[in-house]
Design a protein around this nucleic acid. Structure first.
Length: 564
DNA sequence: GTAGGGTTAG
């Protein structure tokens, strides 16, 4: 019980144990476990230390839950627990990861105001944030400023971020020069060699990369699995497989074991060359070494089969990964969708797109959608419909509406089907007013409501207790030339029965039955609940008897044609 | 006893 727990003193060692347990644990519930622990922590008296909070926050950040971490920090602040430099640095990092560097710099200002001098980590995080936002020029400027004004003494991390930024921006030579500058100073490069070696390989300067590899070894810096993996990829990409194989043996000889990433590079390389058989052999080899193929391994294989047009084989790989409880991501699906499109199986591709939503991965679906658009695959009403439906199903009505609004001038948006999806979605996400606004809007722009529109709006009225408006619309739709269907009647009758209005329910029940519609499961339940309370000669009872007897006779509903 | 950088799949 919560109240019992509140009275317990905060057991620091117990909390630390649970944090440690989470740190080493894994599995699909990890995020939830961390959040639950956080809730429990905040309920304790005395409150947890900022160190414990920071530790847990670090875990949440490692799981890439940046927005969550930020809102948790807000709660911590509101509880009056003062944050420290660590907490603020973690927050700055979260903003940077969310592509909100500006907020990161705003927190830097807060630091100054609160009298905490920002430290090396603060600056490193911001420089890295600028790099992540592709603002490498500004990152370099900040770095220079810090150096010139002697605001801090750059360390491995700072050099690492700047060198990485230069490489990502295509300035490998500048990165190389900075690496040389490091060598001349007191902070000697280590992983920075890897960054530059990898970048040289990607810039087709594999021989220069090999040269730098020799250099670093001569300087006594040990090459690690990342150095070798980058070189192996560089060699493979330019048809130098024999040398790549030699490199693989070389690393093993030096006691550096290939990792999952190393194998993934090999698997992908084989796949791109069309030899999926060799890729499969590489996968077998990694498994023999006790390395578990991951989503990237499987995605590379799937893409390999799709490139060859062997979509059935690709599907088998997908099944295999799902069996291993690996979750396919946007890249996996993209390969498959491309595979289907190549085989002109558009229907299948579209179904897969739909499936992504049902698997509860709306972010992936949205990403795929954005790419479809970027690549010039013009989305159709169907595409938008699938997307909006999926977003609404995952309580992302706000995002769905925002997307809908952003396309406002598009003629495609003046589509009743999209309005239907959004009205229903808003209502089911607890936003009935938005749903009704959408209904007004579609009438205003001259769209003709369909039976689905009316049903959705009637559902809103019913849920908001406006039964009168619901029945009114039922009458009005028919006047407008749109006949109610089974859903329309069921929505209203069910609600009338719930609200104990048997008279009105009787009229509509008879009407619907006359028109050949049957009460659905939910309506029938409400109907049966009412039976014991109505008189022997009531029409409601007669209706139920009639319904059940007809069903008993031949099980067909179409036989109910005569009025009760 | 808490924060920050390098390698892999469409």
């Amino acid at each position: 019980m919560n109240c019992t727990r509140n009275r317990l003193p905060a057991s620091t060692s117990h909390l630390n144990q649970r944090i440690l347990h989470l740190k080493n644990g894994s599995g699909p519930t990890k995020v939830n476990d961390a959040l639950q622990l956080f809730d429990e922590m905040l309920q304790r008296q005395p409150p947890p230390s900022i160190i414990q909070i920071n530790q847990l926050m670090t875990l949440i950040v490692k799981m890439k839950q940046y927005s969550t971490a930020l809102s948790l920090f807000k709660r911590v602040n509101m509880m009056g627990i003062p944050s420290d430099l660590y907490a603020i640095n973690i927050s700055i990092n979260c903003h940077c990861r969310l592509n909100q560097v500006a907020y990161g710099f705003a927190l830097l200002a807060t630091l100054f105001k609160q009298g905490y001098p920002p430290d090396l980590t603060t600056y490193n995080t911001l420089i890295n944030g600028l790099v992540l936002a592709d603002r490498v020029f500004e990152a370099v400027e900040l770095f220079k400023k810090l150096l010139i004004e002697k605001l801090c003494d750059p360390d491995q991390f700072m050099y690492g971020s700047v060198i990485n930024g230069l490489c990502k921006a295509g300035h490998t030579i500048k990165a190389y020069e900075l690496l040389r500058y490091m060598e001349s100073g007191s902070c000697k490069p280590v992983v920075q060699y890897n960054t530059v070696i990898d970048s040289l390989c990607k810039d087709k300067m594999v021989d220069h990369a090999l040269q730098l590899f020799t250099n670093m070894t001569e300087k006594g810096v040990l090459a690690d699995v990342i150095t070798y993996s980058s070189l192996i990829q560089g060699l493979c990409n330019f048809g130098r497989e024999t040398e790549a194989a030699r490199m693989l043996m070389d690393m093993e000889g030096k006691g550096v074991s290939p990792s999952v990433v190393t194998f993934n590079i090999l698997v992908d390389s084989f796949c791109k060359k069309g030899s999926v058989k060799d890729a499969e052999l590489a996968v077998q080899a990694m498994v023999r070494r006790g390395l578990n193929p991951d989503v990237i391994t499987y995605s590379a294989l799937i893409d390999g089969y799709c490139l060859r047009g062997e979509i059935d084989e690709a599907e088998k790989v997908l099944d295999g990964m799902v069996e291993k409880e690996l979750v396919p991501n946007i890249i996996t699906y993209n390969s498959l969708i491309n595979g289907y499109c190549k085989k002109k199986r558009i229907g299948k591709a579209m179904r897969l797109f739909q499936e992504i939503q049902h698997k509860g991965n709306p972010a992936a679906a949205r990403e795929l959608f954005n790419e479809m658009q970027a690549k010039g695959h013009t989305p159709t009403v169907l595409t938008y419909g699938i997307l909006f439906h999926g977003m609404c199903k995952n309580s992302q009505t706000t995002d769905a509406l925002a997307l809908f609004r952003s396309l406002g001038s598009n003629e495609l948006m003046k589509n009743i089907v999209l309005y239907n999806i959004l009205i229903d979605g808003c209502n089911k996400c607890g936003k009935p007013n938005l749903a009704l606004d959408l209904y007004d809007e579609l009438l205003l722009i001259g769209l003709k409501p369909t039976v689905r529109t009316y049903n959705a709006v009637i559902r809103v009225y019913c849920q908001e207790g406006l039964l009168g408006k619901g029945t009114e619309l039922l009458r009005k739709m028919e006047e407008n030339g749109c006949l109610p269907d089974s859903f329309t009647y069921n929505i209203i009758v069910r609600e009338l029965l719930k609200k104990n209005e048997p008279g009105e329910a009787e009229i509509l029940l008879e009407e619907m039955i006359n028109r050949g519609f049957m009460p659905d499961h939910a309506t029938f339940e409400n109907l049966l609940v009412r039976i014991p309370n109505v008189g022997k000669d009531s029409r409601l009872r007669t209706i139920v008897l009639k319904l059940t007897s007809v069903e008993r006779k031949d099980g067909k509903i179409s036989n109910i044609t005569s009025p009760c």
